[in-house]
Simulated assay, not measured.
Amino acid sequence: MSSDSAVPLAGSPIIVGFGGAALDFLAVVAAFPKPDDKIRSTNLKVQGGGNAGNALTCAARLGLKPRIISKVANDIQGRAVLEELEADGVDTFFFVVSEEGCSPFSYVIIDSQAKTRTCIFTAGYPPMMPEDLSRDSLLSALDGARLVYFDGRMHETALLIAREAFCKNISILVDAERPREGLDELLTMTDYLVCAERFPQAWTEAASIPRAMVSILLKLPKLKFVIATLGENGSMMLEQCMDDGPQTEEMDVDRSFESLVRQKDDSIAKPTCIATHVTKFRAEGIGSVCGRLYVGTAEKIPPSELIDTNGAGDAFVGAVLYAICNNLSPEKMLPFASCVAAAKCKALGARSGLPRREDPCLASFYNRDPNQ
């Protein structure tokens, strides 16, 4: 993550993703209903969903070549999931399609007044198991891959894929929403971790997110960085660096984070990034780690343009996958990912607003050369 260039052409790196792909039934309402209420929707949309499906769709629109491993049933929902992914350039060859059962789906209620979304998920059946994926198919899926991504679901099959990727020295990124069965072992093989705001403290029991991030890097020495997404407050990232020895300054990680937050310029609407120099960050009662701390701001979206936050985290992850494959520096990666997530929030559903590489909202990240 050392390049300071703007977003280059992707060169179509291959990535592999494993996790949820589903169908979302989205209903917009004026306000979230109370118990026993009967209300009418103001808008309705049926669209592909699922963390892995969304993140890989985002990556494909930005220029990567994603392959997805997942499972659906041979029903109307399953066929719709596959068709939509294929239309966006996601390779579905490694999907498992069950002749029986049902495909996963979600009911999503978008409150247009509070600007929130509530998801009711129904898991697919039968679930994907390791025996659904032959070794030949797995090796074929991983062939030529630059990066493998997991959303933390279906842990038995995820671990099978991760162990093979680990043996082949293929980098692994995990998106962690909350502690799940099998996640601890998966994280021991992980190079990059992107997590929801509540995950770091839930997983480490640390008193603050910055302290939790120090704890995560100490528990998982293979990690190159950990990012926590903070919604409208942007994101924070702790990157692991080489210790320069006695001359490396030592600082309390909470105070360093607070210092960065104070430096934010709230008058700037577009995403920005503020960073420390290489520092030995100390977390009381936990230990210390050498690295750089980053605070990324979120794009300020006018209320009239904020439509739906569903899938914003997946969009952020998809942009991070792109950034890693193109060696973007964290100072470029965090604003880029925030810009992509903001574009998603300006349309209904997890995918409608996902920008393509040529989208004007990303123009400021491109090199000066118009052909790049």
Rank of each mutant, 00 (worst) to 15 (best):
L142V: 12
D151I: 11
G101H: 07
V81Q: 05
I110Q: 02
D111L: 11
A87P: 00
K115Q: 08
V96P: 00
A87G: 05
S140A: 15
P130A: 15
A87F: 04
E99S: 12
T92A: 14
I68F: 08
S103I: 00
T122S: 10
A73Q: 07
M129R: 13
E131N: 09
C102I: 11
I69G: 00
E100A: 15
A123D: 10
V90E: 06
E86C: 13
L85K: 11
S103H: 14
I68W: 05
V90C: 10
E100M: 13
V96A: 06
V90Y: 08
R117A: 07
S70I: 01
L82F: 09
T92P: 06
V97A: 04
M128P: 00
F121Q: 02
V90T: 01
L142H: 02
E84F: 11
A87C: 05
I110H: 01
N74G: 05
C119K: 07
L138S: 02
D151K: 02
I69S: 01
V148Q: 02
T92Q: 12
E83K: 15
Q77M: 08
G124F: 07
Q113L: 11
V96Y: 01
S112K: 15
P130F: 15
F105K: 01
A141Y: 06
D88Q: 09
V90D: 03
Q77Y: 10
M128T: 01
A87L: 08
E86G: 12
V96Q: 06
C119W: 02
S112E: 12
V108G: 01
D143H: 15
I109Q: 06
R117P: 00
I69L: 15
I69N: 00
I68D: 00
F95L: 15
F150Q: 03
S134D: 08
A141R: 02
T92W: 11
R67A: 12
F150R: 01
S70A: 14
